[in-house]
Write a protein that binds this DNA or RNA. Structure first.
Length: 291
DNA sequence: TTGTGTTTTATTGCCTCC
DNA sequence: GGAGGCAATAAAACACAA
């Protein structure tokens, strides 16, 4: 048995020991709660046992029902072989208690596992048993309860051991995943394919790539603005031209207007473009488009 | 029916407490 | 020293499979 299990068993034994001093107050009530019927059942036998208690088998003294023919003989032999007092004890003739007796002993034990001297005498009298038998029964019952608790404790320890084992496995798996994650991160930042080891396209966009993206966005805007202007001019001129294409989801249009000068009308746009030079390009482009 | 394992009752020896 | 507790054990009673 492992040390952990031994420690648990010691703790349980201590708990049981502590419990024995806590329940004396309720004993009397429990014993008195036993119905008189049980005593009445053994009443006739009890009367005779008052007269012949030292000459009758224990079975008849305590009103134990014999369960087999063999038991009858054994009960008779109990005193035939032995004598009185302590000599009877040495001749061990075990008699099982009746169901009623056990039932009431259990009910008392359920509330308190230890009986004081007076309570034991009273209970024995109530159940038609010998005081010694009540004492033995409680002693054996405590032992049985302890065994049950210990077995339960062992089962719990086994379960805890299993859970701890599972936790260790999960921890190991977690460590492996962390290691894999670390390798993958390093591969990504090194621009190396983690499967073949060859360089890969960097995930971070280069300046050139960003410049191209910006140009793309700018050209899209110009196209949309020019289309809007074209549609507006065509509508004003009422030339019956259909719009080039319907504009949907167009970003807010920049301010624009027409500037006349030098015998030339130019479209001026307040552009979102990065530089005035580019704005000029777009203006010219739009102008050419409108014309 | 019988052999075997389990449960229940009882005993013994040792220890602690009053 | 006696009473009572516990652990270990004996032995009877019981359960059950073969």
């Amino acid at each position: 048995m492992s040390d952990a299990k031994k420690n648990t068993l010691n703790i349980m034994a201590c708990l049981a020991e502590c419990h024995r001093y806590r329940c004396a107050s309720m004993q009397k009530d429990v014993i008195h709660s036993i119905p008189d019927q049980l005593t009445m059942d053994n009443g006739s036998q009890q009367e005779s046992s008052d007269l012949h208690v030292h000459h009758l088998p224990i079975a008849s003294v305590i009103g134990v029902e014999d369960r087999t023919e063999e038991a009858d003989d054994a009960a008779v032999d109990y005193h035939d072989d032995g004598g009185e007092g302590q000599d009877e004890v040495s001749n061990k003739r075990m008699k099982r208690h009746t169901d009623d007796q056990i039932k009431h002993l259990e009910s008392v034990f359920e509330r308190c596992t230890y009986l004081g001297g007076n309570q034991r005498v009273e209970l024995a009298k109530k159940l038609g048993m010998e005081e010694r038998q009540v004492k033995f029964w409680f002693q054996n019952r405590r032992t049985r309860k302890k065994v049950i608790i210990i077995q339960g404790g062992i089962a719990i320890l086994d379960m805890m051991h299993d859970e701890r084992q599972e936790s260790m496995w999960l921890q190991e798996e977690n460590d492996v995943l962390h290691a894999e994650n670390k390798v993958l991160k390093e591969a990504i930042w090194a621009n190396i394919c983690f499967t073949c080891g060859s360089p890969v396209v960097p995930a971070i966009p280069t300046v050139h790539h960003r410049y191209l993206s910006f140009q793309n966005m700018r050209l899209d805007d110009e196209l949309q603005h020019a289309t809007a202007v074209f549609n507006m001019v065509a509508q004003d001129a009422d030339v019956g031209l259909p719009p080039v294409f319907p504009l949907t989801d167009v970003s807010p249009l920049p301010q624009f207007g027409f500037v006349t000068g030098n015998n030339q009308t130019s479209l001026v746009i307040d552009p979102p473009s990065p530089s005035q030079s580019e704005n000029q390009v777009s203006t010219e482009s739009a102008n050419s488009t409108s014309t």
